[in-house]
């Protein structure tokens, strides 16, 4: 592998990692504050992508679509929280898994009913189409680069929100001791709805951005959801910092593994066997990474109180 190819794949991995972070941040926030495991988080990702595709098709503007994706997903998240999720905070994890699995079935079939089974396509806006020449002469798609930048900005914004604002203080207090902040007069029900909607909005935003790279279709959120689970298991459940480190790690390891393993096996095997074995092994690589982390740090890289 040449240095240029390596660098390009490293950027692809980071772009993948950044979108994973947008998903994992919401999941880990909801778990940290409310103690809830939400399988339907992937559905919110899908809602964001569909909202973006529908609005972009109707108005011709990708930017309006992007705004719509955040609004639609956050709004859907708030509705789901008030109608269903709120009843699950006191339940055990099994009930949470089942109820949110039921939500996936409902939202996926509902989406298929409205939009049909055929994938929608979302075009990259003209200003972000085409490559940019990176220092060193390497051409790289502007759109992917902007995802990395935007994702980095969102991570920074999330950090500032949680570390510096009053809402952030309440969120952190909610993680530390729920009864106590309720006793101090914080409206905990509204706080929960806001946190859930915030996570949902991030997921929807991620869905819209990825929607322009892939196709927008029912079920697109599920593989990402499971990778986001892997990310927060590696990073440590409840830790945003852990989620950021782990998503970049997972994104880069997965992308580089898929590119390099087949050629590495090719050094001592015939090419066709090498490519099939290499691709099978590389599809398992991040789960192996998760297993290794579990053996040495069962609580994840960044433990919840760290």
């Amino acid at each position: 592998m040449t240095a240029a190819l390596f660098f390009e794949q490293l950027l692809n991995g980071m772009q993948f990692g950044v979108t994973l972070f947008l998903m994992a941040a919401g999941l880990t926030l909801v778990f940290g504050v409310m103690g809830l495991i939400n399988l339907a988080h992937g559905s919110l990702y899908m809602i964001g992508a569909f909202a973006c595709a529908a609005v972009a098709a109707a108005t011709g503007s990708f930017w309006l679509g992007l705004v719509a994706s955040i609004v639609a997903a956050a709004f859907a998240g708030a509705i789901i929280e008030v109608s269903v999720i709120r009843r699950l905070y006191d339940r055990d994890h099994l009930d949470q898994v089942l109820a949110t699995f039921a939500l996936i079935l409902i939202i996926s079939e509902g989406c298929r009913f409205v939009f049909g089974s055929f994938p929608l396509f979302l075009d990259v806006p003209a200003i972000l189409a085409g490559p940019v020449i990176l220092p060193g002469g390497l051409p790289y798609p502007i759109y992917r680069l902007s995802i990395i930048v935007v994702g980095g900005l969102v991570a920074l914004g999330l950090y500032l929100l949680i570390a510096k604002t009053r809402l952030g203080i309440r969120i952190r207090a909610g993680e530390a001791d729920r009864e106590m902040i309720a006793a101090l007069g914080v409206d905990i029900r509204t706080l929960y709805t806001i946190v859930f909607a915030l996570g949902a909005g991030l997921a929807g935003f991620a869905g819209a951005m990825v929607g322009a790279l892939q196709s927008v279709q029912v079920g697109m959120g599920e593989p990402v959801l499971i990778l986001a689970f892997v990310v927060i298991v590696i990073g440590g459940i409840g830790s945003i910092k852990g989620a950021l480190i782990a998503s970049i790690l997972v994104g880069v390891v997965d992308t580089l593994g898929r590119v390099s393993l087949p050629s590495m096996f090719g050094l001592f095997m015939d090419p066709s066997a090498a490519s099939s074995i290499g691709s099978s092994i590389s599809s398992m690589l991040i789960y192996v990474l998760m297993a290794v982390v579990l053996i040495f740090k069962p609580e994840g890289l960044v433990s919840q109180n760290g």
Binding site: I226, F229, S276, M284, Y287, A291, L294, I295, P298
Partner: peptide
């Protein structure tokens, strides 16, 4: 591996390992 943990971790890890086999079977 997964019984080293409990609760939500256990749910996610069993899910992830099953998914690993799924992708293995596909590829």
């Amino acid at each position: 591996l997964s019984l080293r943990t409990s609760g939500v971790y256990f749910i996610m890890i069993t899910l992830a390992f099953a998914q690993m086999l799924y992708y293995f079977a596909i590829s």
